[in-house]
């Protein structure tokens, strides 16, 4: 059993005995088998593992998009499996920022409007929203592209807008599923650099799935998903 170590107040994410099975006809796909995980606040964790090993499934469960077959996910002391669909939805709005491989920007909305979306679920005034959107866009270096549509941006720029959208409402967790998977090395590095900065300078907790060992090296710790369990690769925080 690995990564069940943080006790006390700084433990932000606690996953216990997480089981996820998919049923496809008569076939049972046992994706996660009693997985355990602790993540401290402000930690940058990279998940690696072969295709189909369940990395996306794990992120979806931690992000409250999916429900486990059994086991628990606790974020900030709140056991999210207990939440009803509606409360889970508003929990996501408050606590999770998602970053996807394919950016998932809304193509008919401008960068500004895309970034603003999560703020529409808050009680912020127009002026406050405006301020937050500009701060977020500035943080990813795209303040001058606010009026551009996703189609007018490069892949790297789209992903930076997506990062701005993920952080604009100041969520507890950033969940990134192969955020550089569709980008070239250089652009991908810029994205990882931004995530690294968010973790180090802005104390964001970042959980990132990646296939890229170089990208994973930027994280505080790297975990491998194998046969439904997490195996620790390295513990940089402890080594240093």
């Amino acid at each position: 059993m690995v990564r069940v170590d943080c006790s006390g107040t700084d433990c932000l994410v606690q996953v216990r005995n997480l089981d996820k099975k998919y049923y496809r006809g008569n076939e049972v796909i046992d994706v996660l088998r009693g997985l355990n995980l602790d993540v401290s606040a402000g930690e940058f964790v990279a998940f690696m593992g072969p295709s189909g090993s369940g990395k996306t499934t794990l992120l979806n469960l931690i992000g409250g998009l999916d429900t486990p077959t059994s086991g628990t996910v606790t974020v900030g002391g709140e056991e999210i499996n207990d939440l009803s669909g509606r409360r889970l939805t508003s929990w996501r709005a408050r606590h999770v920022g998602f970053i996807f491989q394919m950016y998932n920007l809304i193509p008919v909305l401008t960068a500004y409007q895309n970034v603003q979306l999560p703020l529409l679920l808050t009680g912020l005034s127009k002026a406050e929203r405006d301020r937050h959107v500009h701060t977020a866009l500035e943080l990813v270096g795209l303040a001058d592209r606010a009026k551009h549509y996703p189609g007018q941006l490069s892949g790297g720029e789209e992903q930076r807008v997506a990062i701005a959208r993920a952080i604009v409402a100041d969520p507890t967790l950033l969940l990134c599923d192969e955020p550089t998977g569709d980008l070239d090395r250089e652009t991908g590095d810029e994205i990882i650099e931004i995530l690294h900065r968010l973790s180090k300078e802005h104390e964001k907790t970042v959980l990132m799935v990646t296939h890229d060992p170089l990208a994973a090296e930027k994280a505080d710790s790297q975990l491998h998903l194998e046969k439904g369990l997490l195996v620790e690769a390295e513990r940089r925080g402890e080594i240093s």
Binding site: R86, T89, V96
Partner: peptide, 14 residues
């Protein structure tokens, strides 16, 4: 479909 799923992931309700 993916836009809708994204909006739902962001926290927009059904």
């Amino acid at each position: 479909i993916r836009e809708i799923a994204t909006l739902r992931a962001l926290g927009f309700s059904p």
